[in-house]
Simulated scan of single mutants.
Amino acid sequence: MMNSIAETLGKTRPFYQETGKEAAVFTHAFQNQIPVLLKGPTGTGKSRFVEYMAAVLGRPLITVSCHEETSSTDLIGRYIVKGAETVWIDGPLTTAVKTGAILYLDEMAEARPDVIVAIHPLTDHRRELYIDKLGETVSAGSDFMLVASFNPGYQRGYKELKPSTRQRFAGISFHYPDADTEKNILIRETGVDADVAARLVKIGGKIRHLRELGLAETASTRLLVDAARLIRSGLPKRLSVRTAIIEPLTDDDETIAALCDVADLMI
């Protein structure tokens, strides 16, 4: 089933710190009706970027968090029993196509293969959605845009996007920002003071280079923001770092202890 649908139109533009030409690429892709694939590790700002661009372009945003049970039916729609009638309910994909919204498939590779089959006609010159259960084909207007995210490092060896799918999208790569940019993000997002922000950025950078610990994920900017928020609210610095950065990364007691030792020296 679909995890969430969030529509953003007319809301305050969310903060997003550009690190390159990603906004210009996204805007031109929208104008030329080219779908976009956002590639990068967890917590590097992909979802926030889509929210930001939807606000910049003045388009509603529908977000679907994909998982292994997400099917084409979840996206396209289904019949439901309502009282004494059976009625059709559009799914988020159909709604986005009909209303000219931006549809964001977060972690698209996690979804079932039939999802990829359903979106293919929307990602080439046809820009059409076929609704099998209704026997209808819906053409997408110029305002509809398909955006998907993909974590290549996490998915490697598990669920990869096929070349035939990847080549239907323009790609934008996301990476962890440089230290100064990440520091500014923490200050802007949380109001934490510059010294604490700088120390959190150093901790994040150090953990990202500790490859010998074999962490499945590393310290993302999102985790640093969470730690900064806890510190800003009055939680002790060391406890904030352990709670928001270290504990989410591993369940191994020895690894937690090693990461705490590293962080304690910096905070």
Rank of each mutant, 00 (worst) to 15 (best):
residue 217 E to D: 13
residue 129 L to N: 01
residue 246 I to Q: 06
residue 166 R to C: 11
residue 204 G to F: 06
residue 149 S to W: 00
residue 218 T to L: 14
residue 144 F to W: 04
residue 242 R to H: 13
residue 178 D to S: 10
residue 179 A to V: 11
residue 149 S to M: 03
residue 246 I to W: 10
residue 223 L to V: 02
residue 224 L to W: 01
residue 187 I to C: 05
residue 193 D to T: 07
residue 231 I to N: 00
residue 166 R to Q: 14
residue 158 Y to H: 13
residue 166 R to N: 03
residue 249 L to W: 08
residue 245 I to E: 00
residue 179 A to Y: 13
residue 201 V to K: 08
residue 226 D to A: 09
residue 154 Y to F: 15
residue 234 G to V: 02
residue 177 P to N: 08
residue 189 E to V: 09
residue 176 Y to M: 10
residue 181 T to W: 06
residue 127 R to L: 08
residue 144 F to L: 05
residue 234 G to F: 09
residue 181 T to N: 06
residue 185 I to D: 02
residue 236 P to F: 00
residue 252 D to F: 04
residue 184 N to M: 11
residue 256 I to W: 06
residue 202 K to F: 04
residue 175 H to D: 12
residue 222 R to Q: 06
residue 135 G to W: 10
residue 131 I to N: 03
residue 254 E to R: 15
residue 240 S to T: 05
residue 148 A to S: 02
residue 155 Q to C: 08
residue 250 T to C: 05
residue 188 R to V: 08
residue 169 F to L: 09
residue 203 I to R: 05
residue 147 V to P: 03
residue 254 E to H: 13
residue 206 K to V: 14
residue 138 V to N: 03
residue 124 D to M: 08
residue 213 L to D: 06
residue 253 D to K: 15
residue 249 L to Q: 07
residue 205 G to F: 09
residue 148 A to Q: 02
residue 174 F to S: 04
residue 242 R to V: 09
residue 212 E to A: 13
residue 191 G to Y: 01
residue 141 G to E: 05
residue 206 K to W: 04
residue 212 E to P: 06
residue 232 R to W: 02
residue 245 I to F: 05
residue 194 A to C: 04
residue 162 K to Y: 07
residue 254 E to L: 13
residue 218 T to V: 15
residue 147 V to A: 00
residue 187 I to T: 08
residue 148 A to Y: 00
residue 126 R to N: 10
residue 128 E to L: 12
residue 161 L to Y: 02
residue 223 L to M: 13
residue 253 D to G: 08
residue 150 F to W: 11
